[in-house]
Structure formats: C-alpha cells, structure tokens
Design a protein around this nucleic acid. Structure first.
Lengths: 244, 244
DNA sequence: CGACTAGTTGAACGGAATCAATAGAGGTGG
DNA sequence: CCACCTCTATTGATTCCGTTCAACTAGTCG
C-alpha cells in the first residue's frame, strides 16, 4: 500500500484520540479495506439494515441521518476523514439511522469479522475503537444541547467551529480555511433550521466579520470571535492535543 | 447480598440488551458496589471532573445535562434503573457533561479499576458494556432528531413513550402506568421547551385521552395512540425483547 | 402559618418557518 | 456555442409556534 493509504487515514485518526503503539499500527496497516467512491446524497447505510461491514471515511463529509414520520430529515452528526461512522454496527445488529454522503466522498469498507478478530486479539485497539464510539456519543450530546438550547445564530457558529476543529485535527485544514462543499440545506438539517434561515445566519456571520465564504470554502476569519459567538469549547471532542 | 441487590439491577438490565451467561452473572454479582441515596437536583458528576468511579442507577431518574454559556440547561438523556450513565468515563478521562438526579435517587458506585479488570478478564462483559454505551449513543441520536425536527406536541409524546418503554423493560412499570416524579421544568430542559409550553402540551395529551396524570403518576391510557402521536418506534432502543 | 416549589393560565412578543419569487452556477445536449 | 434544465443561494412578506412576562393557585414542609 502507498504511504497515504486508507489505513493511514484511520491510523492517523486513532492517534489523535488514543495512544496506540507500533505493534498495533502494524496490525492496523494490514486490515483489508475496500475503497469506493460515492456521489453526494448517497445512502451508504439505511435504517433497518443489518450490515456486515463498517466503513471509514477517507475523503469528504458523511452524515448520520434520521427521518421523522413527517419526512423531515435530521442530521445527527457529521463524520470527517478517519472517522468510522457506523462502528456501532459491530455490536448493534439493526441500524437505527442512515449514513449518507453530504459531499462527494470516498470511503473504505472493513468487514465486521475482520474488526472483531482484531478486537479480540488486540485489546488496545478494541479500547481505541470503543473510545472512538464514546467520542461520537459525546458529540451527539453536544448536538442535543446545540439544537435544544442555543439560538440559530449561535448554533450555526458552533457547528462551524466543530467542523473546522475536527477537520484540522486530521490535517484537512490549513489554518482556518475549510473546503467544505456542504449545502445550506444540509446545514439546516443538521441544525434543525430551514434553509432560508441558514442563509440568513451565514450572512450575519459574514457581516460580523467572523467568516468569509468563497464558493464552498469557509474561512474562519476571526477564530476567537467565532468560538465566542458559537459558545464553543473543544472539551467534548476529547482530542488528545487540541489545536488551540 | 440480598436477592434484589444492586448488582441484580445491573444484571437484569444487561440481560435485556445482551446475552450473558451464568459465568458472567457470577462475576457481576461479586462487583463491589457502594450504594448511596441522593435528593433531587443533585449533581453526581460535573463537567470537567475526572472521576474514578462510574455509577449504576438503582432507583429514580438521572439526567445527563449540559449548560450553555447563557446558563440554559439541556438534559441530553434520561437514565433509569440498571443504566450506567457515565460508563464512558472509563475511557474518556474528562467529563463533558453533568449527571444529576431528576428525582430522588439511589445509585451504586463502582470503581473504574474494578470495571477495567472485569473487562480485561471477561470479553463478553466488556462487549455488553460497550453495547450499553452504543445504545446510549443511539438514544442521543434520537434525541437530536426529536429536538431538532419534531414539534412540541409530538416531541412530548415521544419522550413519554421512551421513558415508559425503558422503565418497563427493567420491570419498573406495570402496564403503562409510570410513577415518574419528574417536574415539568425538567421535561422542558429535556425537550428544549419552556415549562409553560410543556404544561400546555401535557394538557393537550390529556385532552386527547392519550395520557392521564395523577400527581407524579403518568398513565398511558392509549398506548397505541401515544406512540402514534409521538412518532415513536422502539428500534433505536435496541432491546432484545421489545415489550410490544 | 408563612415560605417555597410546582403547576396553571392569559396576554403580548419574537424567532424562525413558510410561501413565493428571483438570481446564479454548473451541466447537458442539440 | 447557446438554449435549457436543475440545483443552490438569496431576498421579501407573511404567518405561527413557542417564549417571555406576569399573575395566581395548590400542595408541602419546617
């Protein structure tokens, strides 16, 4: 495999959240991963599925989504490069949510039985995976709070902060310029807002000089100001070395 | 220990979500658990803490809570008898949320090192614990959806359905009559609503004949109707044997 | 009995949704 | 190359769900 293979993306991510050693890295490098590309708005996994694979995000943005009986969509979390969004499928046989591409994306599929045998033989890797799912849960908790108790403007700033932080921690961002080709409709579904209101909140963030957007590029012009506006604190991301 | 000791509550719960055998049950029965009673609105764990214990709920209702910079509280999930709300503390050293009693409660503290050595020696128990944290995450996901995309009336019905389902699965409810001495303010903090509006939604549910309340007792008079009104589907609870 | 907490009610306000229309960007095919 | 189509972003006007403010009631406890 090449120096920046799909397993390297996974390993880099695990290193940002846990202490894994040479021995484990060697094991991880040998996991069979089947890469595949997808267009935007493609369901990788659907509610009710009983998959035998989990997947690692290699490129692009994935969302876990749920639909209400009325057909409204809620994105319950984002997943960036290195994340394994449906790792919980390893222990929960029936999926309770969908996983969809929010941008064009490349992902790598890993068989559950491969993951299980690695977990059995390498407790430190198992612990790292467990930890990874616990961080996902911490992020869900923050999202409940964000959607439930923050107003639209703060909510929007908060989610941008999270995205930028997470992408930066896996080396997908230089400074605070993120290339996130996500639609305003998707942002709305993540924030529990209408697209119209998403648009207005972004305008307000621009007007305040906190962000600049050129096409799909989001630039945090005033990171300190943006975190303040977003009531953002990195604790819940549980990164080993928060970038700032 | 007596027949219905604190470890029995834990074991019963684990049996509703995973297949554990006699061997594991024997191990679990011998975990040292330190019981303690608390009044309502008591913080058992605070954001920023680095606890060396986790706790199992024995009696009463616990909430994981977060506060926004503006001081608004959001309850991000409920925890009922048998649940271990802060099990994630085992792998995430710094707490990113609080755990507070929403009713008077009895909980049992278990040392992290005791849990770790059990997980090391009994992979099936480790898997059950991991699974338990994954179900917590599934519930968080549902809450994001509930708060983000359902309107107040549906939201309220949904949360009542969840509470009743979860309490029933651990034998805390006869039929559909739940003794939940939870305040309307707490319900508001869980739903992202004001107490005033909580009150009105409860009235509407009563008017529709879906529930009846006598003091702290909530009676689901029309379970089918309530689940319909709440857009409720038990899948996300991942119970082995859903009661209906 | 007074003080506190929880629940209830009414009126007015406001944040965000909805509806509707327009503009722009990218892609496709004749 | 341009006409056409679709998707996304933008803007304005109106509506409405839920908040806020402010009483008031009822139960509980010291």
């Amino acid at each position: 495999m090449s120096p920046t293979s799909s397993s390297d993306v996974l390993i880099r991510k695990l290193q940002t959240i846990s202490d894994i050693r040479e021995a484990e890295i060697r094991v991880l490098k040998n996991i069979p991963i089947q890469e595949k590309d997808f267009l935007v708005n493609h369901d990788l996994v659907r509610e009710g599925d009983q998959p035998v694979y989990s997947f690692v995000v290699l490129e692009g943005l994935i969302g876990s989504t749920k639909y209400t009986g009325e057909g409204k969509r809620q994105i319950t979390s984002f997943f960036v490069a290195g994340d394994i969004p449906d790792l919980h499928g390893l222990h929960l046989s029936v999926m309770d949510c969908n996983f969809s591409t929010l941008t064009p994306a490349r992902v790598g599929f890993i068989r559950h039985d491969a993951l299980r045998s690695i977990c059995d033989q390498h407790p430190r890797i198992a612990a790292a995976f467990w930890r990874s799912t616990l961080i996902d849960a911490a992020i869900y908790r923050e999202w409940v709070t964000n959607v439930g108790r923050r107003e639209a403007y703060t909510r929007m700033a908060h989610i941008l902060c999270e995205l930028i932080c997470r992408m930066r921690s896996v080396g997908r961002i230089e400074d605070h310029v993120a290339d996130i080709p996500i639609t305003q409709a998707a942002l709305g579904d993540a924030l529990g807002l209408s697209t119209v209101h998403v648009n207005r909140m972004l305008q307000e963030l621009r007007r305040e000089g906190l962000i600049a957007t050129t096409g799909s590029r989001v630039h945090a012009r005033d990171w300190a100001g943006l975190t303040r506006a977003g009531d953002f604190d990195t604790t819940y991301l549980h990164q080993k070395n928060p970038a700032d």
